[in-house]
Design a protein around this nucleic acid. Structure first.
Lengths: 212, 212
DNA sequence: GATTTAATTAGACGTTCGGTCTAATATAGT
DNA sequence: ACTATATTAGACCGAACGTCTAATTAAATC
């Protein structure tokens, strides 16, 4: 939980060849991710993030223009981190396309379990909070979902080609359906501190796929 | 948007036979519901609610012990209001059980549209926020979902008895699946300011039901 | 090696918010 | 008339928010 800096930061311009060129900045981002996935954007104060990693406020506003800018960068980081994660699962040629989707779901469950179902999906969290967030976030969040969905869509098409699901299935719709529901499941898993909602959604989704 | 009191409130003990016996209190609750479904609990300040309805702080803390108590009451109010709404739809004997479920979904879509998809579900909103909320809310929220789900479950059993879905279907699971996903759809509809996610989830859910 | 420039930390600052508390006011009850 | 009760009014406090300026240190320049 407590990330700490290897070498305590000092004032002033840092030496050029230190190992911690972006350490403080990254430290803030990773602490921010932790807290935001747990408590959301509005409920989280900069001070809390700062305290967690023993960084003074000045540093924060040195690296980020504002809380909003910080959030925007977190979205980008998280989105691409997660996109890579999806790609890793969905490109596993040792599994059938449908099995890859299942593998992703299983992996995501394990990931939530690792944090005792206390952390959700940053994108889902922020989406829920949009009413209180800078409007600039909306498009970003929508785009992230669109991206994740398109990855799923491609995998579903592959499943179709492999005869795992009906050739008449609308893969785009199915992919959207998955992500709409999955975020609900993550939300609920956080509320219940349990894997059950994730499992129920998994079962429901795969059982509902039109057989090939 | 701006609810206003019929007669401006005055200081002092109010006359007994006024029409506004609980007006101020109700005013606060309904304004609170509006704001909380849009922005969530943490992002909303008491002051904002008070300003909206031109009520001074003294009144708030006269009627409610704390923000937490206010939230708890909102949950109860909303939960039972919504439970009645569900009951109304699911007890409509002029429709088949499955058609009643569809009617509920359609009605909920219309309700969201009425607020331009800016307001979500209070229970879902608070569930997402749990990481930053008083822990006493958790059990309440879980119970509300359990309640709503059990209503759905009963209707699904009726659908089963009517031969609309497979007799082997696990109605409890299906009901849970619905509410898990539906909350995701509401979240997403709010993010996109669109009915599309609700429709996609509706299609996906009903298409996935095991035929009778 | 003195001086300027760039990078980073330190923390003061003003504002807002949640919650408390006291006073003021008005009606009800006796 | 007097007391009790209900409600509004808003000052006040401590904590937290986001911003901003100053201080400090190393690099770069000459």
């Amino acid at each position: 939980m407590e990330i700490q800096l290897s070498i305590p930061r000092r004032r002033g311009r840092p030496p050029k060849l230190r190992e911690s060129l972006l350490e403080t900045r990254d430290l803030l981002l990773s602490a921010g991710l932790e807290v935001l996935t747990e408590k959301g954007f509005s409920a989280t104060g900069i001070d809390e993030i700062l305290r967690r990693v023993s960084v003074p406020k000045g540093s924060f506003y040195h690296y980020f223009e504002s809380k909003e800018a910080f959030g925007a960068e977190l979205i980008e980081q998280y989105a691409s981190y997660f996109a890579r994660k999806i790609d890793r699962y969905l490109s596993d040629q040792s599994l059938s396309p449908l099995a890859r989707l299942r593998a992703f779901v299983t992996g995501a469950q394990a990931a939530m379990a690792r944090h005792d179902f206390r952390r959700g999906c940053l994108i889902g969290n922020l989406g829920q909070e949009m009413g209180a967030l800078p409007e600039t976030f909306r498009a970003k969040l929508q785009q992230v979902f669109a991206d994740w969905q398109s990855k799923f869509e491609r995998c579903l098409v592959a499943a179709q080609e492999a005869g795992e699901i009906s050739p008449h299935a609308d893969c785009k719709q199915l992919a959207a359906f998955f992500w709409i529901g999955w975020e609900g499941a993550v939300l609920r898993a956080k509320l219940e501190h349990s894997a059950e909602p994730l499992k129920i959604f998994e079962r429901g989704f795969f059982a509902g796929l039109p057989p090939g």
